[in-house]
């Protein structure tokens, strides 16, 4: 019997508490979302009453099943507002992720090329802003981007513009906010793969006659693809469902799905539609989510 086996038994007992917790507070709630999304809008009103009684027994449950309908999903598909929201969410996430990759890669690459002792410092420097609250970081940008904010003052002082530019409530502001908030999530996985890469591979490529740009394109970049994948997924998935940034920085004429869901839930108090929107969002994100899980698992469980 190997020592790993000896270890495995008590280690498995450690799983019990977190397992129960996650089933109870992560898995089971999805069943409720699914259930409510299939309910008639009227049933869920008013929102502060229990949606159904767990104590009502088998018959009540059967009755509840009979009452299920896909009306909400039909609404989501037929109403342009929702369709547009999904399309916009995906477009915004795609654009923002591309921007993040283009901005994050050179930074991560620069970090990986620092002398070893400086790399740790650079990593802390990249992580620290991530520790300062998300909301605060968005708010910091509102300060800068508002009508008489710092950015416009600088632009005016430099005579680059003749009158203040409208930044707030535009897509540009939203993209700035998203890139700013998610940059560490892009940089860190990229940096991790780039730092692990043996510099001797780049040397070998240049020894075999590749000028610097070919060294990068033929060796460095392909070898960093796992990091690119992790970074892209780590940014793309949450951005699709993003609420705060578009809400505070973008205009209100076209909403992302996270905003729509929020609106249905808090303003219109239409829980079933909000739940249906959440289910659809989850379905849209299923493929990237599964990809991300595989990546995460491989990364954390390899080499053992």
């Amino acid at each position: 019997m190997s020592s790993r086996r000896i270890f495995a038994r008590p280690a498995r007992f450690a799983a019990i508490a977190p397992y129960v917790w996650m089933v109870l507070f992560f898995l089971v709630p999805f069943a409720f979302v699914l259930k409510i999304s299939l309910s008639q809008t009227a049933i869920a009103q008013p929102p502060y009453e229990p949606v159904f009684a767990l104590t009502a027994g088998w018959d009540a449950l059967k009755a509840a099943f009979a009452a299920l309908s896909i009306e909400n999903f039909k609404l989501l598909v037929s109403d342009d507002i929702y369709v547009f929201a999904y399309v916009r969410s995906l477009t915004v996430a795609l654009t923002a992720t591309t921007l993040l990759l283009l901005i994050g890669y050179p930074i991560a690459y620069g970090m990986a090329r620092l002398p070893k002792s400086w790399q740790a410092v650079a990593m802390v420097l990249v992580i620290v802003p991530f520790w300062t609250s998300f909301l605060i970081r968005i708010y910091a940008w509102i300060n800068i981007l508002q009508h008489d904010g710092l950015l416009n003052q600088i632009l005016l002082a430099l005579h680059l513009v003749s009158q203040p530019v409208v930044w707030l409530s535009t897509d540009s502001a939203m993209y700035i906010g998203i890139v700013y908030s998610y940059l560490p999530f892009m940089i860190l996985p990229l940096y991790a793969t780039l730092a692990k890469m043996e510099p001797v591979l780049e040397e070998a490529a240049s020894d075999l006659g590749a000028p610097p740009w070919q060294v990068f394109w033929l060796v460095t970049f392909p070898l960093s693809l796992p990091g690119v994948g992790a970074g892209v997924l780590l940014c793309f998935i949450p951005i699709v469902g993003e609420f705060v940034i578009p809400d505070l920085l973008a205009g209100s004429n076209s909403l992302m799905i996270g905003q729509t869901l929020w609106l249905e839930f808090f303003t219109n108090k239409d829980w079933p539609v909000a739940s249906a929107a959440a289910i659809v969002l989850l379905v849209v994100l299923l493929v990237p989510l599964l990809l991300y899980e595989r990546l995460q698992k491989r990364q954390l469980e390899q080499g053992r």
């Binding site: 780590l234 949450p238 469902g241 993003e242 909000a274 995460q296």
Partner: peptide
């Protein structure tokens, strides 16, 4: 880790 917060919150 990546689940949009609106979904986690709502559920």
């Amino acid at each position: 880790l990546v689940m949009p917060e609106v979904i986690t919150g709502l559920s």
